[in-house]
Computed example of a mutant assay.
Amino acid sequence: MSLTLSDARIVTPAGVHEGWLTIEDGRITHIGQGSAPGQGHSLGGRHVVPGFVDIHNHGGAGGSFPTGDQARARDAVALHLAHGTTTTMASLVTGSVEELAAATSSLADLADDGLIAGIHFEGPYISKARCGAHNPTMLRDPSPEEFSRLVKAGRGHVRMLTIAAELPGALDTIRTAVAENVIVALGHTDASYEQTIDGIEAGATVATHLYNAMPQLGHRAPGPIAALLEDPRVTVELVNDGVHVHSAMLRLAYKAAGAGRTALITDAMGATGLGDGTYMLGSMAVNVADGVARLVEGGSIAGSTLTMDVAFRRAVEEMGLSLQEAAEIASLTPARVLGLAHEIGSLAVGKRADLVVLDDTLVVTHVMKQGSWIS
């Protein structure tokens, strides 16, 4: 079956042009400028951008990936899909090895079905001094052997590990993860500039929510932020919700890393898409007030209630990016992190027809995944 979308402003890596695209068997087969040949489905001049790719997401719609509950995980994925996220990584939080293995095994079933793009361990190998919304009593030093057990539970679907490079055993665990084809991110860390470089040299290639849960920039003690921004091998995650990071610092990170090394994430938790109230993130109680999630005890920021469409819109309105640049950091760069840029992340002939239709105010009107309309 063939479908042509016409009268569209198509956002591609080469720029934005008015034209049309054709989809067959779930893939983009043609992209053209001007009037579509034959009868097309008119989008009335709306923008078409690639489906968003979220590599750091803990849940939504009341579902929390750390629980491993498959039905609620499906609810979370559906919520984010309605907001344009066509590829979601399920992020866990710190827990016992038994809890993490059980959740991983359960979520691996959803990865088998293509519902999620993989599993991300945010913890338990993180700094107590920078643990944020993680249960400090369950933190522990990195163990290559324990991590290998968790990878085995994931049946090939463990895709990312967040770790603090300064902890005993961290560098060996990073090397083990890389050998297991797991992406390593540095975050929730109290590392120095030099210790961060050691982690990168061991194989880390991502910065978990840059700025948050790490020492801040200092002119004599630059810390991890400087090391992560200046290394061309590292992609930096940014939570663009107006709470986690000031817009000026978002712009600064973007200028340092560029579109090719900047990935928007949500860090969303189960309350996303719901109202204010009390929720759980792993074993930690979280209060959401005015859309901002904080721990009941201590008040630390506890993930977000952000969706990727809002992050995209803020990239244009607050960071001053073009639609082309915003699409790169919301879709193509995170797709590269996952090694999936040949399949998703941009609108190009041969790629999967994962796309989002936006009106003039950059609000989602329609979402398509693999050639099928979701909304």
Rank of each mutant, 00 (worst) to 15 (best):
M1Q: 04
M1R: 10
D7N: 15
D7T: 02
D7P: 06
R9L: 13
T12I: 01
P13V: 06
A14S: 15
G15F: 09
E18S: 15
W20T: 02
I28T: 01
T29A: 08
I31P: 03
S35W: 02
S35M: 11
L43N: 04
G44I: 11
G45Y: 07
V48N: 01
H56R: 00
N57M: 10
H58P: 07
H58S: 04
G59L: 02
G59D: 07
A61M: 05
G62M: 12
G63E: 06
G63T: 00
S64E: 14
S64G: 13
Q70S: 13
A71N: 12
R72L: 13
R72H: 08
A73V: 06
V77P: 03
A78K: 12
A82I: 02
H83F: 03
T88M: 15
L92A: 04
T94A: 03
S96I: 05
E99S: 14
A101V: 09
A102P: 03
A102W: 09
T104N: 00
D112Y: 12
D113P: 00
G123K: 03
A129R: 15
C131W: 00
G132T: 14
G132Q: 12
H134T: 14
L139R: 05
S143E: 13
E145R: 14
F147N: 02
H157C: 06
L161W: 07
E166W: 09
P168Y: 04
T173A: 08
T173I: 09
V184Y: 01
Y193V: 09
Q195L: 11
I197M: 14
D198Y: 02
T205R: 15
T208C: 03
M214K: 00
M214Y: 02
A221P: 00
A221R: 09
P222M: 09
E230A: 12
D231R: 06
D231A: 11
T235N: 06
V239T: 12
D241P: 07
V243M: 10
V245Q: 02
V245I: 15
M249I: 10
R251A: 12
K255L: 10
G258L: 08
R261C: 05
T266N: 12
G273S: 10
L274I: 06
D276I: 08
D276S: 08
T278H: 11
L281W: 11
N287D: 15
V288Q: 04
A289P: 00
D290M: 07
D290N: 13
G291Q: 09
G298M: 10
G298R: 08
M308L: 13
D309P: 15
A311G: 14
F312A: 05
R314W: 03
A315H: 07
V316H: 10
G320T: 13
A326Q: 01
S331I: 01
T333K: 02
A335N: 05
A335K: 09
A341Q: 14
I344A: 00
I344V: 15
S346N: 09
S346C: 13
V349G: 08
G350L: 11
K351Q: 14
K351S: 03
R352N: 15
A353S: 05
L355I: 11
V356Y: 06
V357P: 08
V357M: 10
T361I: 01
V363E: 13
T365D: 07
T365N: 07
Q370C: 05
S375L: 05
